[in-house]
Design a protein around this nucleic acid. Structure first.
Length: 561
RNA sequence: CGGAACGUAGCGCAGUCCGGUAGCGCACUUGAAUGGGGUUCAAGGGGUCGCGGGUUCAAAUCCCGCCGUUCCGACCA
């Protein structure tokens, strides 16, 4: 493709609305342009890469027996009401104003709708249905460019099976296909076991890419590949000590001491000699949660331990419940349920709040002084702690969710009446799985992992072009004739070539554009080398330059770099 | 939804405090020079100063309301 005739608007300056590297570079290299918050237009160069990603996805989905559909983005609201998801999605669901339609944020309902009455026998299954299509979600806060948008392209797949065993097979196939897709795209990723969440299924796994721009926090063990969302991640760390001699409880005057740090300073003690108190409302009944030292309560873990609704108490509720304000609350004399983190199990000689403002207690022995205490894992794993599986060191970092595979079960088939007859003539609900990939996120993540100070650094198979051919001074007849000839023969060799044939534009402009656009190989044709019948090859990634005789250029390209 | 910032030419920004006929750099057009790392010179074109209202002889500038964009947080099947 000739640059002189292409719409590839590059930007020298950093657009002010972009913050993360992939977003900045996607705009600067003319891949995308923003239309509105969380809504992007794909420009020709960006869409070319996106098509390559989609082709890889199609190949791998077809390889596991997937059949490609194209479902409508506009859906009748009625179907969404039947599964209760108009309410479940709430404000995230876009609703059309002048007709009873919604813009589909996902397609479980539509898949179930088409399966109903068409998948009627156990002989009709298994089925793998997928599509690559635009989804709409009214995100309250779009961010990070294409990574979190109000409109985005998703590959979503659905399996229809007769039973759980069939679902296991479909699930495993998708796991395999997803690994193949992300491997082929050249991404460094890892797989995280996720909580089943509100979708109502059993097992789910997330495919994640480490990134500062991520919205999930995960704990990861390099050695044994243990990976978990920090909402559920566990770790091994030092427990509170149990001393031989258990002191009696005594009260200490601690004026203006509120935090654990202040208490440790004031009493000259270690943080692991203290038990921090947090009060939550569990279905409108107070619960005291004790944590070791400064550990924070992991509210996801707390909620799954207690069940029901859990929220932190408001500051003005605390005095009524405990007799003291935050900073002086403790287990002794607390009249409601008390639970503690496992690190505190059987701890004694501990310091904690006295349920009396400006007082703390010492000599706390949890098993002696708190009769009905129960212990659970309630803390959040932190960077540098030990892996629960292999005792190696855990790394905790932010990550972007690229894909999610999910065992749905029969929630949608039951709600919409998608039933089949088994070999005994008995009516059964179809068992579903759903599997998503953020197509644009693949591209954004690839860029997050592949760029330098000059710009993008593509590699096969996502590179929009194999070769960026630069004719330096195209007003020079020899240069332009040679470059034109090279352009034709490179294409004849089967390369995808972007040809900078612009008549104006100095060498510096062309070099910088080529580095910004980041094709793997640059072929540079200029007067200097042409005098000796040579041209230059440059490896964009390594910056390595080689001067080659024109006749040998194509041979040289075919050698591994 | 809570907190904060910003909105002036295609892009990046100054001007706003302290009201008085809208500026800079890049990009663009024309001409010339240059031609291996964003080169140089000259001449140009392009702006309802986000929108609406108010104060004033006079508003990009002060006041009120709205909209938009971004960041932090909450939310995230």
């Amino acid at each position: 493709m000739r640059l002189s005739k292409s719409f590839i608007p590059t930007l020298k300056e950093v657009p002010s609305e972009a913050v993360i590297p992939s977003h900045i570079l996607m705009i600067r290299a003319g891949l995308v342009r923003q239309l509105s918050a969380g809504i992007y237009s794909w420009l020709p160069l960006g869409y070319k890469v996106l098509r390559k990603v989609m082709d890889i996805i199609r190949e791998e989905m077809n390889a596991i027996g997937g059949q490609e559909f194209h479902f409508p983005g506009l859906n009748p609201k009625e179907i969404w009401e039947q599964t209760g998801r108009v309410e479940a999605f709430g404000d995230i669901l876009f609703q059309i104003k002048n007709r009873e339609y919604v813009l589909a944020p996902t397609h479980e309902e539509i898949v179930a709708y088409h399966a109903k009455g068409a998948i009627v026998s156990y002989k009709d299954m298994p089925q793998i249905w997928y599509q690559i299509q635009t989804k709409f979600r009214n995100e309250p806060r779009p961010r990070s460019g294409v990574i979190r948008g109000r409109q985005f392209i998703m590959k979503d797949a659905y399996t229809l099976d007769r039973d759980a065993a069939g679902l296991d097979v479909g699930y495993a196939l998708h796991d395999k296909a997803y690994r193949a897709i992300f491997d082929r795209c050249g991404l460094k990723y890892f797989v995280v076991g996720a909580s089943s969440g509100a979708m109502g299924g059993s097992k789910s796994e997330e495919f994640m890419v480490k990134s500062e721009a991520g919205e999930d926090t995960v704990a990861y063990c390099e050695k044994c590949q243990y990976a978990a969302n920090s909402e559920v991640a566990q770790s091994v760390t030092e427990t509170a000590k149990h001393h031989e001699e258990s002191k009696a409880v005594y009260e200490i005057s601690t004026p203006n001491v509120k935090s654990i740090d202040e208490l440790c300073d004031f009493l000259k003690i270690h943080e692991h000699e203290t038990a921090k108190s947090r009060v939550y409302m569990h279905d409108e009944k107070p619960v005291l949660v004790l944590m070791l030292g400064n550990d924070e309560v992991n509210e996801t873990k707390l909620t799954s331990v207690l069940g029901g609704n859990v929220r932190p108490c408001h500051p003005d509720e605390l005095k009524d419940i405990s007799g003291a304000d935050a900073g002086s609350i403790g287990p002794i004399g607390f009249k409601h349920k008390i639970i503690a983190d496992t690190l505190l199990k059987d701890a004694n000689n501990m310091f904690s709040g006295a349920n009396k403002n400006d007082y703390h207690i010492g000599g706390l022995d949890l098993s002696r002084d708190v009769p009905n205490i129960e212990y659970f894992d309630l803390r959040t794993a932190e960077n540098g702690e030990k892996c629960i599986r292999c005792d190696s060191t855990l790394e905790v970092f932010k990550a972007i969710e690229l894909g999610h595979i999910f065992k749905l079960g029969t929630k949608y088939s039951e709600a919409l009446g998608v039933l089949y007859l088994d070999e005994h003539g008995k009516e059964q609900p179809v068992v579903m799985g759903s599997y998503g990939i953020g197509v644009e996120r693949i591209l954004a993540c690839f860029i997050e992992q592949n760029y330098d100070e000059k710009g993008l650094t593509w590699k096969e198979p996502l590179a929009p072009f194999d070769i960026h051919l630069i004719g330096l001074n195209m007003k020079n007849a020899l240069v332009s004739e040679t470059a034109e000839r090279l352009y034709i023969s490179l294409i004849a060799e089967g390369y995808e070539v972007l040809f900078d044939d612009r008549l104006d534009g100095s060498a510096g402009v062309k070099f910088n554009d080529a580095d910004l656009l980041g094709m793997p190989i640059q072929v540079i044709v200029g007067e200097k080398n042409l005098k000796e019948g040579k041209a230059e090859l440059k490896n964009r990634r390594t910056g390595e330059k080689t001067i080659v005789e024109l006749e040998k250029l194509i041979d040289k390209l075919q050698q591994p770099v």
